[in-house]
């Protein structure tokens, strides 16, 4: 979480800039009033209401009844809803671990010299980041289609028995979706880590080599510790993204076949807007928000520990 790191410089500044600041802090509040009001109206108030809704059973039309923690209980006990956590764990493997490992590998393989043409590669690696998920979903629907490039390639090399309707298969739909996430994220991780390694002092590498460290030891002793901050950012972003997956699943599989690719966000959408169990939807949202917060705080804490 960025908050603690952000507070420190601000406090230091208050001390240093007191003469200008003291007179202006009330004016500052007036300037900040509009953004704060919009933020409170759209984010803070509904956040509180989410918590409130989550303790009620409500179908959106008739009167609501207080049910205490029942909605939270059904989120963790209902087999279908509980399975969404398992799906998220699989997605974390594909959205977070795989891209980060690939990113680290490439950052380690690339020597830290500035090469001409790097800008072009960076442009390509970031391309999936600027494309809307709807289009990415369509791109891969095509790739995974029964007559799509993937199956064609398998048939061409004689692996006909492996060809399948990837997104309609109970076993393969989730990993197939996961690989889309890998494709979207690995370029971002790569660029993040490459920029990170170029900031590591060259002396550290020289020292490691003087000590007779091989490339593997060098990676674990110098590169990996040097990338700590970038790793924390990448982990936080990708893990929360796996937890929040919606667009991709909604457009490709709607959570199916069966419920084999159901994610918490898709379950929330269905509970909120399709067969209204609004209290349950709110409870799912609250749990997701808490998990995101916990993930971010834990990762930041661990990465800052020395």
């Amino acid at each position: 979480m960025p908050a603690p790191a952000q507070i420190r410089p601000a406090q230091a500044a208050v001390v240093r800039r007191r003469p200008l600041r003291r007179r202006t802090r009330w004016v500052g509040l007036a300037f900040a009033a509009l953004p704060l009001a919009v933020y409170a109206l759209v984010v803070l108030v509904p956040l509180g209401q989410s918590v409130q809704y989550s303790f009620f059973k409500w179908d959106g039309v008739s009167a609501s009844t207080w049910v205490g923690f029942d909605n939270y209980v059904s989120f963790v006990t209902d087999p279908v809803l509980r399975s969404t956590f398992g799906h998220v764990l699989v997605l974390i493997g594909f959205f977070a671990l795989l891209p980060i490992v690939l990113g680290l590998l490439s950052a380690a393989l690339l020597t830290r010299a500035k090469q001409p043409g790097m800008a072009v590669y960076r442009w390509i690696f970031f391309l999936p980041q600027v494309m809307t998920t709807v289009v990415i979903a369509l791109v891969f629907k095509r790739i995974y289609a029964p007559d799509g490039p993937l199956n064609q390639a398998l048939r061409a090399v004689g692996l006909d028995s492996f060809a399948k309707t990837w997104l309609g298969d109970f076993t393969w739909a989730l990993p197939a979706l996961g690989l889309i996430g890998t494709w979207v994220t690995f370029g971002f991780c790569m660029v993040l880590f490459i920029s990170g390694t170029s900031a590591i002092a060259p002396e550290l590498y020289e020292a490691a080599r003087m000590d007779g460290a091989g490339p593997v030891r060098e990676f674990f002793a110098v590169t990996l510790p040097g990338l700590r901050g970038q790793l924390a950012i990448a982990l936080t972003l990708t893990i929360t993204a796996s937890l929040r997956t919606f667009d991709l699943v909604w457009i490709t599989t709607h959570g199916g076949p069966g419920t084999s690719t159901l994610t918490p966000a898709v379950a929330l959408y269905k509970a909120a807007f399709q067969n209204p169990q609004i209290g349950l939807a709110a409870a799912i949202g609250v749990v997701m928000a808490l998990l995101c917060l916990v993930i971010a705080v834990v990762i930041t804490r661990v990465s800052e520990r020395d």
């Binding site: 933020y39 989410s50 909120a272 995101c292």
Partner: peptide, 23 residues
């Protein structure tokens, strides 16, 4: 601002899912 600014930053961590239903 010692209270307000962290609250604003917290918003970067709040996902849409957490507020979409009441919204």
């Amino acid at each position: 601002d010692r209270v307000l600014f962290p609250i604003v930053l917290l918003g970067m961590m709040i996902s849409l899912e957490a507020i979409i239903v009441p919204l």
